[in-house]
Simulated assay, not measured.
Amino acid sequence: MPAKSSTIVTALTAAAVVVVGVLGYQAAASAPDTLTQARKDSHRSAPKDHSDRRGTKDKAPAPAPVPAASGKGQRVVYSLGDKRVWLVGPKGKALRTFTVAPSAVSPPLGTYAVSSRSVSVTGSDGIAIEHVVRFANVDSVTIGFSAAVDGSRPDPDSSKKTGGIRESRDDGKALWDFALHGTKVVVIA
Rank of each mutant, 00 (worst) to 15 (best):
M1W: 07
P2Y: 12
A3F: 02
A3S: 14
K4H: 04
S6V: 11
I8N: 10
T13V: 12
V19Q: 05
V19F: 04
V20D: 06
G21H: 08
V22M: 10
L23N: 04
G24N: 13
G24K: 12
Q26V: 09
A27P: 01
A28Y: 02
A29M: 09
A29P: 01
A31G: 02
A31Q: 11
A31E: 08
D33G: 03
D33V: 05
T34F: 03
T34E: 14
A38E: 06
K40T: 14
K40M: 11
D41H: 05
D41I: 04
D41C: 00
H43C: 05
H43P: 00
R44A: 13
S45I: 09
A46W: 11
A46E: 12
P47I: 04
P47A: 11
P47G: 08
D49H: 13
H50Y: 07
S51C: 14
D52W: 11
R54Q: 11
R54A: 15
G55T: 15
G55A: 08
G55W: 02
A64G: 02
A64E: 11
V66K: 14
V66S: 02
V66P: 00
A68E: 12
A68R: 13
A69I: 08
K72P: 00
G73S: 09
G73K: 11
G73I: 01
R75M: 06
V76A: 04
V76T: 07
V77G: 00
Y78N: 09
S79H: 09
G81W: 02
R84W: 08
V85P: 03
W86V: 01
V88K: 06
G89L: 09
G89H: 07
K91P: 00
K93D: 07
K93V: 10
L95D: 02
T99I: 01
V100G: 02
V100D: 05
S103C: 01
A104C: 03
P107N: 05
G110T: 09
T111R: 13
Y112A: 09
V114L: 01
R117F: 03
R117I: 02
S120T: 07
T122Y: 04
T122E: 04
G123A: 10
S124Q: 11
G126D: 06
G126C: 03
I127L: 06
A128R: 15
V132L: 12
N137Y: 11
N137I: 13
D139K: 13
D139Y: 01
I143P: 00
F145A: 05
S146L: 10
S146F: 00
A148M: 10
V149Q: 12
S152L: 10
R153K: 14
P154T: 08
P154Y: 04
P156I: 08
S158T: 14
K160M: 03
G163D: 07
G163F: 07
I165P: 01
E167T: 12
E167I: 12
E167N: 09
S168H: 03
S168A: 04
R169K: 15
D171L: 10
D171Y: 01
A174Q: 14
L175Y: 01
W176H: 08
D177C: 03
D177E: 08
F178D: 03
F178Q: 07
L180I: 05
H181R: 14
G182N: 09
T183N: 03
T183K: 15
T183D: 02
V187P: 01
V187W: 02
I188R: 11
